[in-house]
Simulated assay, not measured.
Amino acid sequence: MRLASISVDLDSLPHYCRIHGLPESLLDARARALVHAVAVPRFMALLAAVGVPGTFFAIGEDLEADANAAAGMRAAHAAGIEVASHSHAHDYALTRRGPAAILDDLQRADAAILAATGVRPEGFRAPGYTLNADLYAATEALGYRYGSSAFPATPYYAAKAAVMGALALAGRPSRSVLDTPRVLLAPRVPYRPDPARPYQRGSGSVVELPMAVTPGLRFPFIGTFATTLPLGTLRAAWRMCRGDAFFNFELHGVDVLDGSDGIPGELVRQQRDLRVSAAKKLERLREIFGWLRAECDVVTLRDASGRLSATL
């Protein structure tokens, strides 16, 4: 049976303000904690209801700053959900910081996750999906089993470039970073990277598990699109990926939130998927999770990497 994994990046709302060039002062204390306080329990309940495991990518500084967030990750780990690293500070420019700073960031994230769950993370996803040789070297040095940062999605890359350009012209530049176009040529299936050029195949020790994109156009199958596009479009994309041995479905905490949860209107206007009700999003995700469960063996990314690594 094919393998599939469901992962959730727990980016808190300040990171969305940074993406959209909005001041973080828009957010009160409740809004800053919303992803861990509201989205995490919703995802845990959804995964349990469908009967599948998942992987949460946690940001180290969020766990250090919020005892409730750390307790949530402890509960997730106890429920069988893998807690992996999404870096310490979620610095979109992490790949530009140099080897020492990169290694320090990942070590701090590891320490925060270990303190919260009692287990050191075995997987890593880069902020903004941006990977380079220095960052890959740090994942090897820390002995991660896998990375899941490559996102070779042509439509996503083009849309991101357009939005960043529009924000710059509007005088509120995004703090996000546009990756090298070489990512668009990265394999769309699991592979061992070349440590010097991690978007190419090689013999690196840390297996890369790219996020799901379709063959050909490389249309992204991620939470933002899964909760907003017509169901027929998603079914077509899902059918196109049926020849793949592994399907990596990536989501974010905001994929189960909406404006009524206490998100400032300025951010809702910029992050259009927040205009879709959380109830409708959860209904859609329950259906897609059901597709995965019916046709695949749904496992954590850690377990997927273990089962796939010998074949790469």
Rank of each mutant, 00 (worst) to 15 (best):
R192I: 01
D297N: 15
P264N: 09
A133L: 06
S5L: 02
D179C: 10
C241G: 13
S85L: 04
A37S: 14
D11P: 15
A78F: 04
A4E: 04
P127A: 11
D104A: 14
D62K: 01
T55W: 03
P173E: 09
A137V: 07
A93C: 14
Y146D: 01
A168R: 15
G259Y: 09
D104C: 06
Y144N: 05
A49L: 04
P193A: 01
Y129D: 15
Y92P: 15
L167H: 06
T214S: 15
L229P: 12
G223H: 11
D91T: 11
V40H: 01
R272F: 02
P99G: 12
P99Y: 10
Y144F: 10
F56E: 02
S25P: 11
R272M: 04
G21M: 08
P220I: 09
S309M: 11
A115E: 12
Y16W: 13
L131I: 13
Y136P: 03
L22W: 09
L301Y: 00
R97V: 07
V40W: 02
R242Y: 04
D11C: 12
P41W: 00
R293A: 14
R42K: 12
F56W: 00
E266H: 07
P195R: 06
A126K: 04
A76K: 01
R175P: 13
D66P: 07
D297F: 08
Q271W: 00
L274C: 03
D261M: 10
P230E: 08
L63A: 00
R18D: 14
L34P: 10
A158E: 15
V52L: 07
G147V: 00
A45V: 02
G262V: 03
G21S: 10
A138V: 01
V206M: 01
P190E: 14
D258T: 11
T55H: 05
L3E: 07
A310I: 09
Y146M: 03
L217R: 12
E266V: 08
K281Y: 15
